[in-house]
Write a protein that binds this DNA or RNA. Sequence first.
DNA 1: CGGTTATTTGACCGACTTCAACTGCAGTGG
DNA 2: CCACTGCAGTTGAAGTCGGTCAAATAACCG
Lengths: 243, 243
Amino acid sequence: MNAPLHSAFGAKIAAHTPLSEAERAALGSLLTRIQSIETGGQIAAAGEPLDVATIVVEGVVARSKLLPDGRRQILSFLLPGDFVDAFASVLKRRDDNLEAISAARVAVVPQTRVAEVAARFPRLYEAFLREAFIEGSIAREWVLNVGQRTADESLAHLICEFATRMEAVGLARDGLVAFPFKQQQLADALGLSTIHLNRVLRSLRASGFIRLEARSLTVLDSATLCRMSHFNPDYLHFDRRAA
Amino acid sequence: MNAPLHSAFGAKIAAHTPLSEAERAALGSLLTRIQSIETGGQIAAAGEPLDVATIVVEGVVARSKLLPDGRRQILSFLLPGDFVDAFASVLKRRDDNLEAISAARVAVVPQTRVAEVAARFPRLYEAFLREAFIEGSIAREWVLNVGQRTADESLAHLICEFATRMEAVGLARDGLVAFPFKQQQLADALGLSTIHLNRVLRSLRASGFIRLEARSLTVLDSATLCRMSHFNPDYLHFDRRAA
DNA sequence: CGGTTATTTGACCGACTTCAACTGCAGTGG
DNA sequence: CCACTGCAGTTGAAGTCGGTCAAATAACCG
């Protein structure tokens, strides 16, 4: 992970919106209050006011919800460059949690700062809005993943999504990508038990579709993985102008 | 259901945003091109451009996704007064479907019209944004529902959510509410087989929690239903100013 | 090195699915 | 008026996917 430090954030937005120097500078100015969070550390909790947005600078963050008896569902993984809750101030209080999957660095941006930048730079405003709706679209795909796909399909789908998104921000190359997840976390993301997740993961390795060692994943047979999980990247809305 | 025809839409927004006469008029002006859709009719399909927003005037609409082999997941139910895809023009193409659960009447609003109204009335703009993010919040709760809750819990939760939302737009009274769903549709919403859904629904009736006859639902024991499903209405974000 | 946490494995169990058949009802047409 | 059709709902039996319980490695960390 020795990519230039703040690159993902700007790169992600620049991928679909050409940016002026002033816009780049404004983006950079959002990355001031950067916090380091250790693995498993909590970044935000349900019930807190929604007065800050969060930009993931480094590492992976999970958005999750809990049931009173302790069952946990992970709702999405936030990767470097992701900017969440930028418009959440239209709601009052957070109803979910943000926690670090790996050691992470995140920028915590007061909504007032976001609003200033958005007011000055309409294209950035639209880019932020776009990010927010893409996260919504991903959440809907997860409903499909958890509700309809079998355990194998849904794990394969998660891997396809993760690899694709990491590649899009330049953090994967030739199918090789950091994979910081504990099996417990993958299980919570897919609505499976850890034990079953372990067997399914194991079977993907045994089939030769992936290699997984030292928290690092190699996708060996991307085509099969995508096909078996019915992965269709449209829901990631990478390119606005694409057909 | 002989509530005044267009009431739900305005009422829903007025519930958290005080509206001027001009704002009311602008809202009304969005409700011009109203289409009647028969039960099961398709309103929009994946792949279409996202150049229109949709307001549900009457009836219930489902947002759904399909897998190539025919499995279907319903992602949310849109009730009278709901306004969806108002900002979706930041994305290019739809990746889900809208279909009528019951006979429905919907207003199909070109994004340009939405933009005009939003530009003239900032408070309406914010209200629309709010609607959009609440739908996102509901989608995240559904991930939890499908991923973690057992079949009984998740059906009970769906019923609590539906009754609560219908009540919020004045379409339920004393626990009595129209319930247009086929068991197949409920099953697709919860990621269950129809047969299992039938048994679970049946057991909720046998337990005396609900009565269900002639497409009309009576919630007999709301407290137990909410408790057993861990229903916490915070995620519906009804009142922005509430604690 | 010891203690904790993560992963792996096995045996068993249960929630949910699948397959198949039957009921009830509304519409349709003879 | 009544067979005929089709669809939604109901029921039963059998099978499977995935969960639970328990325990053994293996990796991690101070």
